[in-house]
Design a protein around this nucleic acid. Structure first.
Length: 854
RNA sequence: GCCGGAAUGGCGGAAUUGGUAGACGCAGCGGACUCAAAAUCCGCCGACUAAUCAUCGUAAGGGUUCGAGUCCCUUUUCCGGCACCA
């Protein structure tokens, strides 16, 4: 074989072989255990970025490992092809989103193929194809008829200049990204999916999901947000009518401390009060300015204004003033809260700002009073004081008593409140799946009949930034009512792209079926055994997918509840940041590839300069690879220079999959160097070397098999970086043996290649065959350590005196406790460090450690 | 602001899950080979120290334990999400 490692030809040959032999095409096969390995499908943004390469490399390692372990492994690929960036690109280039999207898919597909992923390409799908989104529409119609999809108003960001709805991303500091106009909140009719109907089930099932990271389950739990408390009303009179202002609280025990109520700016009571109160009307108008983004709402200054109205305290009968507060969310509960300044931090701040009374009603760790400044103890549970009949009660008893009294008055009861809101899926955008509804003057909202599906999206339009171009397309708009046949208007809103991505994994199991959303093949492949994707999807995408599986289950489409048995959330890909402020005062971000770093004698960076002109640049730490900071590394350039295997090896070796990965060009060089070393060693296999001693031979086998044992353990917990290290350790051991003709060398290399092949499949494929180990490494069995190689006569014990490590001691394998104690007390180590002190006891960890306590 | 993470040499990371901190690699330093360079190979490489011993050392402070990077409490900084980016 060739002595020089030439990745390009090796990789092309391997890919051609896999292609010709259909290596990764899979079908349902009852004779083998199935394994469905899925990485989150990409948005076709133009070209692959490093995050994609990392995601798919991790998935490919898992896929290939399980394949060699004897599983029938499905790894499909598709395109999350609807979405906002296509419309932006269309506006910029005056090209329809469809063309832009399809061109991007073609290019990115070729990139994925060049990386050698073990993908079954016969199952490829794109969510923008009518064959796919037809089933979004089909399911929507079924849910609409069932009441699980419904219409109500929802709040959106409104750009008053472009007269269009903006995505949160298009709102920058409360202003429209194109117009700079101050964005307003606006209520418009939208379709919602009733995810709240599944809140209890989605929450309860988390406990049984042992294959998911705890942190993700916790985030989902908090997002669903089950709160147990009391919902009750404050009665009031309005225009001679008796009404109640409903609130929800988890702290009904503090009800006697209520000194005000606060309602959201959109609350009917606020709107009513504003009718004869210009100042309040103005305040409510102000609250409407700005975006709907919750993070911004939560951080804005808490402001309020009295409505002039009062309501009656349901227990004491006192009059309680009603305020409008910009911190009260209309979307949570009833859009109104009771204010207990003494025991709630937000209410405390609000009361202090506006001079409202603060009445302590709980004896806490800080006593009976609540002097400023606020202390967290004020909000803790305690004993009721100043609370009349409730005095002396503890939290639970107090809540029960209050709830019982409210119930007796017909004003309230215990209540479970969810944070999770129904899912608004309407988007006032063109490049998405049309919502299959027809608006008829006589019949109202009529779903499109199944026989007329799909409602096909016209693909030749170019949006101009002033709203959905479908609104101007009469050939799309004009239709007849499916019920009465009269002229009607087609809905132009499209669906949230999260709808597309909530069930694609089930469709991968059923390619080509134009008669059904999914079929019995989904029964074989689902659930996904291993799902891999970014931690940024921990809540929304994963929660929506869990919801969709339940909906599809309840529609009788498939018998699966949880879509993803095991979840791996990969970390972000980061790179160094460099900038310099140019003479015009503009900050220019310099790509790390264009920067040279000078170092001192210890290797610490002392200065950075731009390569082209030597101008000094500022190192600004590290950050996620992004266009705006110009620190992206193009995978394509890397693959062309070093080959796909080096890129894959570097990505796997540098960080464990769940942690962030810091890019380093030197690290890539190091990975390439290692693959060259493997190649070179392989080319010498069988060549006579020095004659190693029997001890060295035994030590080499011991090393290789211990490393293999650890690597197999690490593979099980998806810690692939140490598996890559293991392959390096094996090569180090083989080179130290200095005899490529030995049995140890042959065995060692065959283990090395199989460990390496999921990471660097092209190299593995080529060398396996070239060295005569077999025809196809994919069909080779996974290596297991030989217990004989791991046998040892002596065990090395760590010796500690008083918990401090003082050295080590070799003891016979069979030595029992008294023997070890005798050995250690006689040892020079203990003689040296105990020096006259009495030995209190001796702690022995079998096979590992002896600690002499003095 | 709320929810969830993370922090170990100059750098990426490892540590058999409470048992020799720094595996493996990068960078750096020294050497071999070479007319020379590149490539390759060998050695060194936490701080303090001339070196050894000793001591210190896993973001900061406290605690539990024979023993803590690992468990508990407090704090700091950074990262992800916050419902229309995907």
């Amino acid at each position: 074989m060739q002595e020089r490692y030439a990745p390009q030809s090796v990789e092309q040959d391997a890919q051609a072989y896999w292609d010709a032999s259909g290596s990764f095409r899979v079908a349902e096969d009852a004779s083998k255990p199935k394994y469905y390995c899925l990485s989150m499908f990409p948005y076709p943004s133009g070209k692959l970025h490093m995050g994609h390469v990392r995601n798919y490399t991790i998935g490919d390692v898992i896929t290939r490992y399980h394949r060699m372990r004897g599983y029938n492994v499905l790894q499909p690929m598709g395109w999350d092809a609807f979405g906002l960036p296509a419309e932006n690109a269309a506006m910029a280039n005056k090209v329809p989103p469809a063309k832009w999207t399809h061109d991007n898919i073609a290019y990115m597909r070729s990139q994925l193929k060049g990386l050698g992923f073990a993908i079954d390409w016969t199952r490829e799908l794109a969510t923008c194809s009518p064959e796919y989104y037809k089933w979004n529409q089909w399911l929507f119609v079924r849910l609409f008829k069932k009441g699980l999809a419904y219409k109500k108003t929802g709040v959106v960001n409104w750009d008053p200049v472009d007269q269009t709805v903006l995505a949160n991303e298009q709102v920058i500091d409360g202003k429209g990204w194109r117009t700079g106009a101050v964005v307003e909140k606006r209520e418009i009719p939208m379709y919602f999916l009733r995810i709240s109907a599944y809140a209890e089930e989605l929450l309860a099932a988390l406990d049984g999901m042992t294959g998911w990271p705890e942190q993700v389950k916790l985030m989902q739990k908090n997002w669903i947000g089950k709160s147990e408390g009391v919902r009750f009303g404050f009665p009031y009179q309005l225009n001679g009518e008796s009404k109640v202002l409903n609130v929800f609280t988890t702290r009904a025990d503090t009800i006697m401390g209520v000194t005000f109520c606060a309602v959201a700016a959109e609350h009917p009571l606020a709107l009513h009060a504003a009718q004869n109160n210009p100042a309040l009307a103005k305040f409510i108008e102000e609250c409407k300015q700005g975006a709907v983004i919750e993070a911004e709402l939560a951080q804005q200054e808490k402001k309020g204004m009295p409505t002039g109205l009062t309501v009656t305290h349901p227990i004491s009968g006192d009059q309680v003033p009603v305020w409008v507060g910009n911190y009260v969310l209309m979307s949570y509960g009833d859009g109104a809260v009771m204010g207990v300044p003494a025991h709630d931090e937000r209410d405390y701040e609000f009361a202090n700002k506006y001079g409202l009374p603060i009445n302590p009603v709980i004896r806490t760790a800080s006593g009976d009073a609540v002097p400023a400044p606020w202390k967290p103890e004020y909000a803790e549970y305690g004993t009721n004081i100043n609370s009349g009949k409730y005095d002396g009660l503890e939290f639970k008893a107090s809540v029960n008593a209050v709830a019982a009294d409210l119930k007796a008055k017909g004003l309230g009861d215990k209540h479970v409140q969810w944070r999770l809101r129904d899912w608004g899926i309407s988007r006032q955008r063109y490049w998405g799946c049309p919502v299959p509804i027809i608006h008829c003057k006589a019949c109202g909202d009529v779903p499109v009949p199944e026989k007329d599906l799909p409602v096909v999206l016209p693909e030749n339009l170019v949006p101009d930034g002033t709203g959905n171009p479908l609104n101007k397309l009469t050939s799309f708009l004009d239709c007849s009512c499916p019920k009465c046949g009269q002229p009607a208007r087609r809905e132009t809103d499209t669906m949230d792209t999260f709808v597309d991505s909530s069930w694609y994994f089930a469709r991968f199991a059923c390619p080509g079926n134009d008669q059904a959303m999914v079929d019995e093949r989904a029964g074989y492949w689902m659930a996904v055994d291993q799902y891999i994707g970014g931690i940024e999807h921990a809540i929304l995408h994963l929660l929506y997918s869990r919801f969709f599986m339940r909906v599809m289950r309840d529609e009788g489409l498939l018998n699966v509840t949880e879509p993803f048995t095991n979840l791996l959330t990969q970390g972000m890909v980061l790179a160094e940041l460099y900038y310099y402020d140019n003479p015009e005062g503009r900050r220019e971000w310099i790509n790390p590839a264009d920067v040279t770093v000078e170092r001192d004698a210890k290797g610490r960076a002392i200065a950075a300069k731009r390569k082209s002109d030597g101008v000094v640049v500022v190192a600004d730490g590290i950050g996620t690879m992004s266009k705006s900071k110009n620190n992206g590394v193009d995978p394509q350039a890397l693959i062309e220079k070093y080959g796909a295997d080096t890129a894959r090896f570097f990505i796997i070796f540098t960080s464990p999959p769940t942690q962030s990965l810091e890019w380093s060009d030197e690290g890539v060089e190091g990975s390439f160097r290692f693959l060259k070393r493997v190649w070179h060693y392989a080319s010498t296999l069988g060549r006579p070397g020095k004659s190693p001693t029997p001890e060295l031979r035994k030590a080499t086998r011991f090393e290789i098999h211990s490393v293999l044992k650890q690597a197999n353990y690490d593979l099980g917990k998806h810690q692939f970086n140490t598996v890559a290290s293991a392959t390096m350790k094996i090569l180090n051991a083989l080179e130290k043996l200095q005899d490529p003709s030995s049995e140890e060398a042959k065995e060692g290399l065959s283990i090395l290649l199989r460990l390496l092949s999921p990471i660097t499949p092209h190299l593995g494929h080529h060398l396996w065959k070239a060295l005569g180990f077999g025809e196809d490494i994919l069909k080779a069995p996974w290596p297991e350590p030989d217990p004989k190689a791991l046998e040892q006569d002596e065990i090395e014990y760590v010796v500690q005196v008083g918990g401090k490590t003082r050295g080590s001691l070799k003891a016979p394998k069979a030595a029992d406790r008294p023997a070890l104690e005798a050995l250690v007390t006689a040892s020079s180590l203990v003689q040296k460090y105990v020096t006259g002190q009495a030995i209190r006891k001796i702690v022995i960890v079998p096979g590992r450690l002896i600690n002499v306590v003095v």
